[in-house]
Computed example of a mutant assay.
Amino acid sequence: MEKDLLKQLNLWHNDREYEKIADRILEIPEPDRDYDSVSHLARALNNLERYEAAVQLLLTMEKQGDKDPLWHYRLGYSYYHLKQYEAAIREFEIVNKLDPADKDALMFIEWSRQEIGQMKRKRKQLVQAESEQSNDIGIGKVPLAEKVKPFLLVEHNNGKSSVILAIGTYKDEVFQTRADEGFEGNGYDWGSLAAVFLEERMPQLMGIVHFDPEASMFCAYSDNREALQSFSIGFKDACEDDAVIRDLFSRAQLD
């Protein structure tokens, strides 16, 4: 890469002008782009949160990047933000072997392991909730459980409660109305919808009911069981009113 171009790219990077970096490199005919220019483009795509595109670009120079800790770092960074945590750990562990002084790689490894642990705990909660409801465990739980289906209520030993929804089984048609904006109906989209509902329909529960979704699951939780139950009933009722839920969804923000 020419020194003047490299200097300009670094200046843009320092000024967070990532679009300018991407546009300038894309002006170079593809056959003329060297390893450094492609690497800078991948970094810019990551900073623009275009992680899928960054992965695809980085994989085109897999052989050249095999021994480059920066290549593995950028690929791991993309995987982490795509919530592909196992792949992220793999890449950051390679970074650690190639460059043991890179403390950020160790940080991302720890964060990825924490995310995997949370996902496993939520899946366990979902299985437990389904089992309890199918076996009618708990006095007085069944009527409430029926009322909020397909949401599942989970009681925890620490006194907290959760309400969980497995994604892809309910109200997909609502999210499809804004698919062109990037909504997919995943757990984060449900979290955005629930946040609008809570703010507009149950503001008294803000700060009491919290959300912790992931891609494959919506999750709301609280240490106030009655508050969470009230939220669950109200949110389910809103979901069953097509006009209401579509109106609320019109103001949801893409996460």
Rank of each mutant, 00 (worst) to 15 (best):
M61Q: 15
F211Q: 11
D4I: 06
W111V: 00
S230A: 15
R178Y: 09
L5A: 03
G185R: 06
L70D: 07
F235G: 00
E130W: 10
R33F: 07
E132R: 13
I116S: 01
K83D: 07
S39I: 08
A101S: 15
L153K: 05
F151H: 05
E199W: 11
M61R: 13
M119T: 01
G117N: 11
L126G: 02
W111R: 12
W71A: 01
L82H: 03
A42V: 02
S39F: 12
I137K: 10
T177W: 02
I94P: 00
V38N: 11
H72D: 00
A194Y: 05
K149I: 04
Q56C: 03
I21H: 01
A53P: 01
C219W: 04
P150T: 08
D32C: 02
K160L: 02
L6H: 06
A179D: 03
N158Q: 04
Q176K: 13
D212N: 13
Q125R: 11
Q114L: 08
L248W: 01
K147N: 07
I164V: 11
C219Q: 15
F218E: 02
A194E: 05
A252V: 07
Y18G: 00
L165W: 03
D242E: 13
T60E: 15
P31D: 05
R43M: 11
M1N: 02
L6Q: 05
K63T: 12
G140D: 09
A166W: 02
V38T: 06
P31S: 04
V154W: 07
L165H: 06
C239F: 04
L193I: 10
F231Y: 13
G187V: 12
N158C: 03
R201P: 00
E30Y: 07
W71E: 01
M1A: 09
Y79F: 13
D255I: 09
Y79G: 00
F151I: 10
F183I: 09
F151S: 03
A105H: 11
E240I: 02
Q56R: 14
G185K: 08
E27G: 10
Y170G: 02
I137C: 04
A22Y: 03
A129G: 15
A145E: 14
V142M: 13
P69Q: 05
P143N: 08
K103E: 15
E30P: 00
Q114F: 07
Q253P: 00
I233S: 10
M61E: 11
G117S: 10
S216A: 14
M217G: 04
M119R: 12
R201H: 09
D180N: 10
Y79M: 01
Y77E: 06
Y51Q: 06
D241N: 13
F235M: 06
D223H: 14
A22V: 08
D241M: 03
L153E: 04
V95W: 07
G117F: 05
T169H: 09
R43C: 02
S131Y: 14
E146L: 15
G207R: 08
K124G: 09
H13Q: 10
D68A: 05
R43K: 07
D212V: 01
E226D: 15
